[in-house]
């Protein structure tokens, strides 16, 4: 199953990029992890097509900090592109294990975090127990949005 990525990001915006690399130069992920950075991602989408980009697990090496978009002199909505690419990657099964585990927890508990002895910990800070999230309702919403077709638990 694929998504029509150009419905979520205007394809012609890719041509606005003149490869100045201000995005990649400001990218905190690029400084510590060898990946492509926003500049090369745009170039790859143009030259190879986005299919090649979303096959690679390196598409996930991103802090989602939005600095690339903030500093882009051409005002290209780079964050929208990166979100659309990764949505597409996830549908092809390219999704980091840590991330799918976090989303499994969300579907099971309605929250993306879990600890043992939560009530005791909250009581230590003078707080009452945290009410359970309405899991049935959330699961039904997720079923109807089609989430279950992308990540199987």
């Amino acid at each position: 199953m694929t998504i029509k990525i150009w419905k979520h990001f205007p394809r012609e915006d890719l041509y606005e990029c003149y490869q100045c690399a201000r995005c990649t130069g400001s990218c905190p992920a690029m400084e510590v992890a060898p990946a492509y950075g926003p500049r090369e991602t745009i170039l790859k989408c143009l030259n190879l097509g986005h299919d090649k980009v979303v096959e690679d697990e390196k598409v996930w090496l991103c802090c989602t900090c939005n600095v690339c978009e903030d500093r882009c002199p051409q005002k290209i909505p780079i964050s929208d592109l990166l979100v659309a690419l990764r949505n597409s990657a996830a549908r092809r099964g390219n999704i980091p294990t840590r991330l799918s585990m976090a989303l499994e927890l969300l579907a099971k508990t309605g929250r993306s975090m879990i600890v043992h002895q939560l009530d005791e910990m909250r009581a230590h800070h003078g707080l009452s127990p945290l009410p359970a999230a309405p899991v049935e309702e959330l699961r039904d919403i997720l079923k109807k949005t089609g989430r279950d077709e992308v990540i199987e638990f």
């Binding site: 996930w60 979100v83 309605g110 999230a133 309405p134 949005t145 992308v150």
Partner: peptide, 23 residues
Amino acid sequence: LPFSCCPPPTSMKLVHYDSWLAL
């Protein structure tokens, strides 16, 4: 109020945008 996970711009939004928006 009986809120759920937001869900995060760093997880659900990247994997399934429609679910992120609905929750």
